[in-house]
């Protein structure tokens, strides 16, 4: 599904150059729910922005299926973003001027694939994610958790191959975080979505199949949940993070 090889990214700030990603490589399989964790400044969000090509990369390969995103021209990239990728941002990035339903339908409208069926699908998603009652409300009128569930529904509307989520629970309280994670679970089970999530929240990450640990721009460890209970996996994640902090 997603194969990242030797990805490098650096920033120039004044005369100083900061290497943020120093040759990151990993894969995400079809239907997998994978998280990236790491301390602040480890390059998590940069990694996600590079995969989606929101920011240019210095070197490396990003393969989605057989397509190398790093080498894709602008127009083709737009098509991939619209059809093959779904995005969930920490600060939701909903359009304030559109209702919840309109926001959900936005990728379909941009892609020109909207139909009565899509509208029905949006309503179904609303039911799945528990936001049916707010479909005609504007973002300013709903809670953070509801905004993020709207963003998840929007990410799924075009049936993308991969959902990229950047700290989806970062701005939410525990109840809302749980609701968002549930919506990812729902998406995986009901809609067969593949999810790649950046998070610093061990609770959210403990629902994943695999967690990649990033530090100083390199992958230092990969933890697999396997058949263990979620709590046990969360404990291991916490121990690993504690270890990294030493």
């Amino acid at each position: 599904m997603l194969q990242v090889s030797e990805l490098q990214k650096s920033y120039q700030v004044g005369k100083n150059r900061y290497e943020v990603l120093k040759g990151v490589s990993f894969t995400v399989e079809d239907g997998e729910f994978v998280a990236v964790m790491g301390p602040s400044g480890s390059g998590k969000t940069t990694l996600l922005n590079c995969i989606s090509r929101y920011i240019p990369v210095d070197a490396g390969q990003i393969k989605l299926g057989r397509t190398d995103l790093a080498a894709l021209p602008e127009e083709a990239l737009a098509r991939v973003r619209n059809r093959d990728l779904g995005f969930v941002f920490q600060d939701f990035l909903l359009l304030d001027g559109l209702t919840v339903q309109q926001n959900i339908l936005l990728p379909a409208i941009i892609g020109g694939t909207i139909s009565d069926q899509t509208e029905e699908q949006a309503l179904n998603m609303g039911a799945v994610f528990g936001i049916s009652h707010i479909m005609n409300k504007y973002p300013a009128e709903i809670s953070g958790g509801e905004k993020q569930r709207t963003a998840v529904a929007r990410a799924l509307i075009n049936h993308p191959q991969l959902i990229l989520a950047d700290e989806p629970t970062g701005n939410l309280d525990s109840k809302s975080s749980r609701a968002v994670i549930d919506s990812f679970e729902q998406a995986r089970t009901s809609l067969l979505a593949t999810i790649f999530m950046v998070t610093h929240d061990s609770f959210a990450a403990s629902f994943c199949d695999r967690v990649i640990i990033l530090r100083d721009g390199i992958v230092v460890k990969t933890l697999v949940k396997g058949n263990r209970p979620r709590i046990a996996f969360q404990d291991e994640l916490l121990d690993t993070i504690k270890e990294l902090g030493r």
Binding site: S52, Y54, E74, E75, A78, N82, F87, L93, P107, I110
Partner: peptide
């Protein structure tokens, strides 16, 4: 700019 950026992020062609 924010609206425009979101459109681009969701796959709208820049042109």
């Amino acid at each position: 700019s924010r609206d425009m950026g979101i459109f681009l992020a969701l796959g709208m062609e820049r042109r």
